[in-house]
Computed example of a mutant assay.
Amino acid sequence: MKKYRMILEKTDTGFSAYSPDFPVFTTGDNMNEVLENSLEAFQLHFEDSQTSINAGQIKLELDFQQFFQYYSVINSRVLAEKIGMNPTLLSQYVSGKKKPSEAQCQRIVSGINQIGRELSELKLTLN
């Protein structure tokens, strides 16, 4: 199944997204709205070619700076310690002073995904 990339950017009023491969762009108040609007924009772009696209084919991409700006609740120093990375190096990736290699990128994303899995499985009790 073909994937359609949309580069996501945080704006003062929400998000904007554009395709680097097709003349498709959209905006939204949140990521879910951008995904829905992206699907509609791609469907409009391909309506004459009989290409069928579903939301699972759209891949939203967000760079590290934008990710940590939007998810400011994630502390880059603590994340670095959790994944065994130098906190200063991760801070440089987050600030845009350095660009991570593909391997480093995967390491960071794996750490973020692990935190997400842990949080989704967490049960809190009220005492």
Rank of each mutant, 00 (worst) to 15 (best):
residue 43 Q to I: 05
residue 100 P to K: 01
residue 36 E to R: 00
residue 34 V to A: 01
residue 50 Q to C: 11
residue 111 G to K: 01
residue 97 K to C: 10
residue 54 N to H: 11
residue 54 N to M: 02
residue 94 V to N: 07
residue 106 Q to S: 11
residue 98 K to Y: 11
residue 99 K to A: 12
residue 93 Y to R: 00
residue 85 M to S: 11
residue 105 C to N: 09
residue 59 K to F: 02
residue 56 G to I: 00
residue 66 Q to H: 09
residue 112 I to G: 07
residue 63 D to Q: 01
residue 92 Q to V: 07
residue 39 L to M: 08
residue 100 P to H: 08
residue 85 M to N: 02
residue 45 H to G: 10
residue 63 D to K: 00
residue 94 V to F: 07
residue 67 F to V: 03
residue 56 G to K: 04
residue 78 V to N: 10
residue 100 P to L: 08
residue 78 V to T: 15
residue 60 L to N: 03
residue 112 I to E: 02
residue 107 R to W: 04
residue 58 I to Q: 08
residue 86 N to S: 12
residue 82 K to Q: 09
residue 73 V to F: 07
residue 104 Q to P: 05
residue 62 L to P: 04
residue 39 L to K: 09
residue 84 G to R: 06
residue 83 I to R: 01
residue 112 I to T: 05
residue 33 E to H: 12
residue 47 E to M: 14
residue 39 L to H: 07
residue 75 N to L: 01
residue 74 I to P: 10
residue 58 I to W: 04
residue 35 L to K: 09
residue 35 L to I: 02
residue 44 L to H: 10
residue 55 A to G: 13
residue 43 Q to F: 03
residue 33 E to L: 04
residue 60 L to M: 13
residue 73 V to T: 10
residue 33 E to M: 14
residue 66 Q to R: 01
residue 107 R to V: 09
residue 68 F to E: 08
residue 67 F to L: 07
residue 81 E to C: 01
residue 44 L to K: 11
residue 97 K to S: 15
residue 75 N to Y: 04
residue 98 K to N: 14
residue 96 G to A: 05
residue 106 Q to G: 14
residue 70 Y to A: 14
residue 36 E to K: 00
residue 66 Q to V: 15
residue 104 Q to G: 10
residue 93 Y to F: 14
residue 100 P to G: 12
residue 69 Q to M: 00
residue 51 T to H: 03
residue 103 A to W: 00
residue 94 V to A: 06
residue 108 I to G: 05
residue 92 Q to W: 12
residue 44 L to Q: 14
residue 46 F to Q: 13
residue 79 L to W: 02
residue 69 Q to W: 01
residue 53 I to W: 04
residue 45 H to E: 14
residue 103 A to K: 00
residue 66 Q to W: 00
residue 102 E to N: 13
residue 83 I to G: 05
residue 80 A to I: 07
residue 81 E to Y: 03
residue 84 G to E: 10
residue 33 E to K: 06
residue 59 K to C: 04
residue 59 K to Y: 08
residue 79 L to T: 03
residue 100 P to I: 12
residue 36 E to F: 00
residue 40 E to N: 08
residue 104 Q to S: 13
residue 46 F to E: 15
residue 36 E to L: 02
residue 65 Q to L: 04
residue 61 E to M: 11
residue 90 L to N: 09
residue 88 T to S: 06
residue 60 L to H: 09
residue 99 K to H: 02
residue 96 G to C: 05
residue 108 I to A: 08
residue 56 G to L: 00
residue 111 G to W: 03
residue 72 S to Y: 06
residue 106 Q to T: 11
residue 87 P to M: 05
residue 111 G to T: 03
residue 74 I to Y: 13
residue 70 Y to H: 13
residue 61 E to D: 10
residue 70 Y to R: 13
residue 103 A to T: 13
residue 76 S to W: 12
residue 111 G to I: 03
